[in-house]
Design a protein around this nucleic acid. Structure first.
Lengths: 183, 183
DNA sequence: ACGGTAGGAGAACGCTCGTTCTCAAGTCAA
DNA sequence: TTGACTTGAGAACGAGCGTTCTCCTACCGT
């Protein structure tokens, strides 16, 4: 097994376990067991657990935002695009292994102790916020809407994570519809 | 020192440390050091750490909702009351030791491992949701508004916690104003 | 004064887990 | 074939921490 695939397998296992059970309750030995990558190899690729955590969050960030953007881009109408964000959230919330927002959860777990993780969470949220801002600008809507959409999306993510329901997505989408109509 | 005050001091220390640094990174010995309550006494009062965590979350829940209600009740106008919720959030976000919502953070940390903690978080959020529902009903507004207010409040809490800014409260309040005006 | 109880300080125990080490097996160039 | 190198399996190490235990001191009723 070459380095690149070992790295991918390690990250696949890390993502599944960290996201599903929390970061602190998953040991490096669990990662080894789930990935088939030996401890020695793991520590060659990621000299400490924290770096594996960072790599996990970063890879997931790229994928998460990529999938959202791919879904939204299927819509041509600029105003529809905004609503489609919440359709995508609803699909995500419905996945069987959905357990809330990985970054919000990581922040709750490690935000107070690891400045690197806290920075990554802030960067991810800023990127999501900026993406919403681009959709708002693309629809010719006032900037002030961006923060409101963002809060509704964040509230939906955290609530869906805690309750296990997909309903917050629909509620947020209805709120967005009202906000759009009010203009 | 009698049992009741030892219990209060233990809970005071637990709340300060658990909320400020996260639950898992605070040891029972830290609680002893901060409270002045000996380990023996601590384990008489709370036979295991998990029960101290539960007592911390429960006491904070009662206080948090009590303070919110006390603040809101100073407003007579039913519609103003709804907006006042977000004024109170803004004050809370501005406290120097504010570090996000204790329940959202606890859920991120322990939700996957402790069913008791997860239940307490869900109960707290349900109680907050029901309180908002009572305000909405008191103002004669449609029920569907409740979930939207709730999502805005949750989004504001989580965003203020991550960014350290009070701004999400004002943004959420503006969104609520729009939603109220749209009726 | 004195025996008994409670409480405190902190050592001790046992487990988990991040990280490193050992050792044997496999690989490849010469 | 040989010898240097890499790798994997898993033991070992060391720290942190939840929990319990030991021992000593202080206080209480008689």
């Amino acid at each position: 097994m070459d380095s690149a695939t070992a790295r991918e397998q390690a990250l696949d296992a890390a993502e599944k376990l960290f996201y599903g059970r929390g970061i602190q309750s998953v040991g490096m030995d669990d990662i080894r067991g789930a990935s088939g990558v030996s401890l020695k190899r793991l520590y060659q690729l990621f000299p400490a657990k924290e770096q594996l955590v960072e790599a996990y969050l970063e890879r997931r960030d790229v994928r998460w935002r990529g999938q959202l953007a791919a879904h939204v881009e299927r819509q041509a109408d600029p105003e529809r695009r905004i609503l489609t964000v919440f359709d995508w959230l609803e699909e995500w919330f419905g996945e069987t292994d959905f357990r809330g927002c990985a970054w919000i959860n990581s922040y709750g777990e490690l935000g107070a102790r690891s400045e690197r993780v806290a920075d990554q969470v802030r960067a991810h949220k800023r990127a999501f916020h900026d993406y919403l801002a681009s959709l708002v600008a693309g629809a010719g809507l006032p900037e002030t809407l961006t923060g409101q959409l963002f809060l509704l999306a964040e509230g939906a993510m955290v609530t869906a994570g805690i309750t296990g329901s997909t309903r917050p997505a629909a509620q947020a989408r209805e709120a967005v519809r009202s906000l759009l109509a009010a203009r």
